[in-house]
């Protein structure tokens, strides 16, 4: 009984169960299936089906996971073995780590900090380093190019993304995610500063290489980019990492722009968490949907979007926030 009680302690429950590991894993299973189903529907077909027909093949991802689990993991002779095997673990870990700082209700969080937004944003920045390292350690030309592309992209999306997030922090006069979410009881951030919302959404998909920015692992150009040499369950880990990163960023995005757990029907931490999860899920699903609409940009175009469009937009959104504050928008709590 004590163990069960311990499980529901926020500092265990949030990282391990919800919105942490278990929820991320479930989301991973569903979103990969859903991505294939959404793409299939737009593409006039059915997508995975026969693996479990009554539910439309929803356990397809489990079959794929099992296959990966029992597949031979190959470590190339030329690769730097330690780096090759450790980077996926670090990548996944760092993609998932920011979740600990995400509150799921005004009263339920692993820890509360005055600067939790900064912590989340800083932690998400770390994962790409390991993608670059992965590209180097495989000792494959395509991996190398993929790693370099990731490196270029990181520089061009991180700063505007940070600025967009900061513009919201300016608006709410707080860097605490709980306060930011609580400040949106009335108007959501997406209405107050739509420019920052659009910009952040764009950059979020860019940072997790969703279409149209699926550039580091551009299939038809550089095979799988940094992941080319990975096989078996290690590849499964790598593949999961980008979805998990998108999931974590979506949680943050929901808190920043979509009101977090507002509107809150019942004042219960789990209901609040479910509300947040649904919003994040929809954002991840939107990312999956974009695959069906867009081809991918070229690297130079993506970089120029980062610097020439996203960067000015983020500066403008900061200015908008400042103007709103000076205009004295009364929605701000503090």
């Amino acid at each position: 009984m004590d163990i069960l009680k311990l499980l529901f302690e926020p500092y265990i429950f949030i990282p391990l169960v919800f919105p942490g590991l278990v929820a991320a894993f479930l989301l991973l299973l569903i979103i990969i299936w859903l991505e294939r189903k959404i793409a299939a529907k737009v593409q006039l077909r059915y997508g995975p089906l026969y693996v479990f027909k009554p539910l439309g093949g929803v356990i397809q991802t489990i079959a794929d996971l099992l296959r990966y689990l029992f597949q031979e993991p190959i470590v190339p002779r030329e690769a730097d073995k330690l780096a090759f095997l450790m980077t996926p673990v670090f990548l996944f870990g760092l993609a998932y780590l920011p979740v600990v700082a995400v509150p799921i209700s005004p009263t339920y969080y692993a820890f509360r900090s005055d600067v939790s937004l900064l912590i989340v944003m800083a932690l998400t920045t770390l994962a790409p380093i390991f993608t670059v390292l992965m590209g180097w350690s495989s000792n494959n030309k395509f991996s190398l190019i993929g790693g370099v592309r990731e490196g270029y992209l990181v520089i061009s999306y991180e700063i505007p993304m940070f600025l967009s997030a900061i513009s919201m922090a300016i608006l709410y006069k707080s860097l605490d995610l709980v306060e930011i979410a609580e400040a949106q009881k009335g108007l959501w951030g997406v209405i107050l500063n739509p420019l920052a919302a659009i910009n952040m959404l764009l950059l979020m998909y860019m940072s997790t290489s969703k279409f149209p920015f699926e550039i580091p692992e551009a299939e038809s150009e550089i095979v799988a980019g940094p992941y080319t040499e990975y096989s078996g369950i290690i590849y499964g880990l790598v593949m999961g990492a980008s979805y998990v990163k998108l999931y974590v960023l979506s949680l943050v995005y929901s808190i920043l722009f979509l009101g977090g757990w507002n509107p809150l029907p019942i004042n219960d931490p789990m209901v609040a968490g479910a509300m947040l999860f649904v919003k994040a899920f929809l954002l991840v699903a939107l990312g999956a949907f974009l695959r069906a609409v867009y081809p991918r940009f070229r690297i130079d175009q993506a970089i120029s979007i980062g610097w020439k469009i996203a960067f000015p937009l983020s500066l403008i959104s900061v200015v908008i926030s400042l103007l709103l504050i000076m205009g004295g928008v009364s929605l701000v709590v503090k």
Binding site: L44, R45, S220, R291, A292, R296
Partner: peptide, 16 residues
């Protein structure tokens, strides 16, 4: 061509 520049939908539509 569609799938080469990354649009799987173009591929599926054309082939469909």
């Amino acid at each position: 061509h569609g799938v080469m520049i990354g649009s799987s939908t173009a591929y599926m539509w054309c082939f469909g």
